[in-house]
């Protein structure tokens, strides 16, 4: 039983560390909590000599949890300046204005129709 807890705890703790470093925000807290629980049970069930693995799982889980909590406070959500996107935006606007210039006659017609309706 203790081996199962250590196995599950290790998997949860590693998953928590990976998710803590990926941009998943506080979602890493879920596997970190599981790692902590499995590690705690493994620690309780182990004999004095074999408690190292359980302690390692607990430390790893706490570390992952701490990173998951602190990271969003340090690294704020921001949008990177994207020159390609800005150029695409400017080009789109320019093309639209040119197209709208070509549509001016139709626009006049549309306005006259609308005016007559009003």
């Amino acid at each position: 039983m203790r081996t199962i807890f250590i196995l599950l705890g290790t998997m949860a703790a590693i998953l928590a560390v990976i998710m803590a470093f990926l941009p998943f925000g506080s979602i890493a807290l879920a596997p970190a909590l599981l790692g902590l629980i499995f590690g705690f049970f493994a620690l309780k069930m182990g004999k004095d000599k074999g408690k190292g693995s359980a302690k390692f799982i607990i430390v790893l889980s706490v570390l992952a949890g701490a990173i998951a909590v602190v990271k969003p406070l340090v690294f704020k959500n921001e949008v990177r300046t994207d020159q390609q996107f800005e150029i695409r935006e400017q080009e789109s606007r320019q093309e639209a204005i040119e197209e709208l210039e070509e549509l001016e006659n139709e626009l006049d017609e549309l306005e006259s129709i609308t005016d007559s309706i009003q």
Binding site: L22, E78, V79, S92, R93, L110, E111, T114
Partner: peptide
């Protein structure tokens, strides 16, 4: 719509929706 920079390496979104309205009608 733009994904936050932390997501750009995983799934990058750059969406642009535009409409030009007649300002009178």
């Amino acid at each position: 719509a733009s994904t936050y920079s932390k997501w750009d390496n995983f799934f990058r979104i750059r969406d642009l929706y535009e409409t030009y309205w007649n300002a009178k009608t």
